[in-house]
Design a protein around this nucleic acid. Sequence first.
DNA 1: CTGTTAGCGCATTCAT
DNA 2: ATGAATGCGCTAACAG
Lengths: 335, 335
Amino acid sequence: MPNIKQVSQYAGVSTATVSRTLKNPEVVSPKTREKVLNAVKAVGYRPNWLAASVKSGRSNSIVVLVPNLVNPFFMRIVEGIEKTAQEYGYSVLLGDTQGNAELEHQYASMVLSNRADGLIQLDHSYPFSELDAELGADIAMVSVCERIKGDHGFPCIELDNHGACRALTHHLINYGHRSFGVIAGQIDSQIHRDRLAGIKSVLDEEGIIFTDQMLVGSSYSIENGIKGARELMELEQPPTAIVCFNDDIAIGAIHALKSMGKRVPEDVSVVGFDNIPVTPYMDPPLTTVDQPALEMGRRAMDMLHQMMSDKPLSRRRELLPFRLLERASSGPVPQ
Amino acid sequence: MPNIKQVSQYAGVSTATVSRTLKNPEVVSPKTREKVLNAVKAVGYRPNWLAASVKSGRSNSIVVLVPNLVNPFFMRIVEGIEKTAQEYGYSVLLGDTQGNAELEHQYASMVLSNRADGLIQLDHSYPFSELDAELGADIAMVSVCERIKGDHGFPCIELDNHGACRALTHHLINYGHRSFGVIAGQIDSQIHRDRLAGIKSVLDEEGIIFTDQMLVGSSYSIENGIKGARELMELEQPPTAIVCFNDDIAIGAIHALKSMGKRVPEDVSVVGFDNIPVTPYMDPPLTTVDQPALEMGRRAMDMLHQMMSDKPLSRRRELLPFRLLERASSGPVPQ
DNA sequence: CTGTTAGCGCATTCAT
DNA sequence: ATGAATGCGCTAACAG
């Protein structure tokens, strides 16, 4: 790889001039500018990004922690992050954590060692070990979709999960449902609490009792949906409506219900969450809550950029609006 | 951020000793080692990765070019890449290209500027502009899933697409089908040619004529599947079997067929490609070709690592085996 | 075993 | 407008 010195020699100027020509072309005379540019082309020079970064002390990279790459909803958020990062001149380092704390920690450490300038966390955990806790305290970090556990005060972008679940519940109640099951994803998370609270608040208002046995499941997977639906249907009083905390769970649940001979929505209504691309094409098309994933990613990156530029944040928390998509997997309660 | 000098002063040793303690602990005396380690902890020191990289001239990062993040099949490959990269001590820079040549070029240029040491391309295009062509010629690059266009001689990992399509076609012929439609994805690609050739080779052997009008579609999307299926069904002699070049297309096709009142597979058989996680749960479950995506990613990274370490490659091309998954979207030809 | 010195490639003073 | 010199933070060669 040719370096700046070779260019300077070829052009018969100093390295400083080469550097200037490339960064502030207007500050060098047109004549030398041309000489330098020609030299650059002639020797095939590309500025060494690493070297430039040591100087500036900034890597212009960020790390994104994703619990699961094979999840269209998460990746749509990442898409938004990356697009925006690109605009700001940042690169995205992918951290596939699989929800593994050790991995999260490893990736997060990149910020501590100047490998990245900031961090976006899609999961809810605080990805620094006790050892790094102090160091990590004043790092540029934003959480999107989930909210970082504990009282660290990191900003976050999230959906109005409480409101969305209220809307979902009202939707089902309007169809006459009085018996609700819930198949949850990650239990120990803010999302879980917000959503459950949203559902329960409406049920309370309507005087509907929600018993613990109506809450099943513990992961955002199709398999969990299958298992959860079976569990619910084996109850003495099975629910007529099932709220699933993501679309994969709903897909699994519907599959399980069908194979048990139940019709959706005639016998049981099922609703999901996220509005992943395949949901309109399921049989039946899935009633679900659309999350503005791309926009969430964009906002998260905007916010992170603010933090990395040491600009004050206008808000530390953004609650984005949901859209309830009423499709065919939910319907009137059976007689 | 504390630097190595501060640690050395705190510990009362030279910076070299600090550096050694951290990289080759066994080469310093236990006593100084302890002093240094204490100092490190005391000042909260983390080695600056950027600085270390300038020295070594290696970033220990790679770029992965992905045409579409919201595609479980692609992301499963990326998962394999990342896992393996991790093992080798590399980080993954995400390049969401959307098939955009300009973006591909930008991301690829990172290798030229020492921001990354190598590149894995999931799409088929050669991501260097003419200007960079010479520079790009001896870069560590591997293509996985697709094969890089042109005669650049970059190694690649791919599925036995030809064989897979032969198997798919035989499967359908065994069910008595004689009239085949194909809904294609990206037309201008090696995959497309290989797959089409695979299908045609079997049809030829069986004396079945395949006319151009039976080939429709031009992108790997659900919408393309819907459109393609409609086009095929509007023909005077619609096919009884439709081969889709990925699962999304198949999902769209089945949806369209159903809404036209056709039953799958009783009236029309549909098969897909990739075996994305949702396919077993579609209605009907999709007959498809499983690609060992994780393994493909792993092999790609293995190969790239070889190249980046200047080790000779055992092979320049790896053809991975497919698995035909016969599920319920394909069946006997209607009478 | 440890310290001194030099240098990775670049960008930014400070002179001129 | 340009060049010489300095330093970013770290590591490796060389001494001792």
